[in-house]
Every structure is written in structure tokens, then in C-alpha cells.
Amino acid sequence: MPAPLFTVINTFTLKDPAGAEDFERRFLDHVRWMRAQEGFRAHQAVRATERPEVYVNLGWWAAPDLFKQVMASETFQEHAKEFHRIVDVEADPSLGILRIDAEGGQAAGDGSVVLVERFTVTGDAEAFEAAYRAYAEAVAGLDGFGHTDLVKSVVRPGQYTAATRWSGPGAYETARHTPEYTAVLKHAEVATVAATPVAGNRAPEVTRHG
């Protein structure tokens, strides 16, 4: 099986909430450069709905060493220096666990939202992963589902992040009331952030590690 994609989750918090336009311009310039780098596969950037000063970006890479090479470059360091002037940055390196798209490959559509869920597994990690997979496969056929990615932190034991695209709040609330989601919560506690897509593209398929 192919190796899981290395995933970097960056949470950016604006030091000045009025600086969103400047940050987004700089970030999109940075992403255009990143897309040309060896090993870059895809990314998804979102802005929190209730805390618009907070952005989250998931970046998928073929391997951690390739990402480290890019980080060491002069251009990346210049971009990082600019970012740190206007945002606080929290990074969470992770490994891709699964990717599921809507049945028939249909996107969630314009006006969609991305639900970012931070799971803290309180029991067996494999049981949690199996429960999340069962949930994702069950809701993939629901109206309003676009796609989901689940990744596992490599530096914070028991921590997972899921990013799921939906057509709107009604769609994800329906999904969160399914028995499959109830089963997920038997294995983990969750903190949820609804967000607006800013930029991104889909990652290639990932497989469960191991």
C-alpha cells in the first residue's frame, strides 16, 4: 500500500484582526510558490466562522523529508518571517489516516463550510479510527457531503484532526446525529470549529498507516 501523506496543520491567529486582507494576500502568494515545490501534494485553508481572526491550513506532502527541505530554503524562511510579523503560528505535523469523497465524486458546492474537528482519543486508537471510517463511509451518501480527511498527530499522542466539507450547517448537523457519529464519540472527545474555505485543492488518496 502507498505510504500515508505527511500532513502539516498550521493554525494562524491574526495579531491584528484588521489584517486579514494582508495575511490572505501573503498566504496565497506563499501557496502559489509552495505548489511548485517537490513533494507538495495539496492543501486546504479555512477561516473560522465564529473567530475570524483564526485560520487553519492543512498541507499534504509526499514525505516529511521533502517538507523539511522546503522549510530550510531561503524563500520559505523569508515567507515565514513575514508571517510571524502578522500572525501567531501553531504547527501540528501529522500523518494522513483516510480520505473519503462524496459518492459519485460530487462536491459540496458553493457556499460550503468546512468542519474542523479536533479529536482527543480517550480509548483505543485503532477502535477510534475504525469508528471514524465507518462514520465517514455512512455519511458519504448524505446530501451536502463533499469530502473528509482524517489525520493523526505525530507529536501529540491521541490527537486527531478531521476536516470535512459540507454544503452548510444543516448537512453536518444531520451527520452528527447519526448512530455512527455517536459511536465515534465513545472513543474520543471532540472540539469543533466551523470554517469558511479560503483556498485549496484535494489531496491524493491516503491510506491507513501500517
Rank of each mutant, 00 (worst) to 15 (best):
D149M: 03
A188C: 09
D22L: 11
G170Q: 15
I97Y: 02
A36C: 07
I86Q: 13
V113Q: 04
T161Y: 13
R35N: 09
P2I: 08
A131G: 05
V8K: 12
L185Y: 05
E50N: 05
P204H: 12
T182F: 06
S73G: 06
A80I: 08
V139I: 15
I9G: 02
T7H: 03
S94Q: 02
R26P: 00
F76A: 09
D101M: 10
Y181W: 15
V184S: 03
P2V: 11
Y172Q: 12
H43C: 08
F119M: 05
R32I: 05
A18Q: 12
L5H: 15
H30S: 06
P157L: 09
E82Y: 11
G168E: 03
E103V: 15
D143N: 12
A45W: 13
W33H: 13
V8P: 00
D92C: 11
V54A: 09
Y160F: 15
S94L: 01
V184I: 12
W60K: 00
V116M: 11
Y172L: 11
K68Q: 15
E189K: 14
S153V: 08
E90F: 10
E117T: 10
R165P: 00
I97V: 15
A188W: 06
A188L: 09
D88T: 15
R85Y: 00
R202D: 06
G168A: 03
V155D: 14
P64L: 08
L115R: 05
A125R: 13
T120L: 14
P157S: 06
V70C: 02
F76G: 01
F128R: 11
A80Y: 05
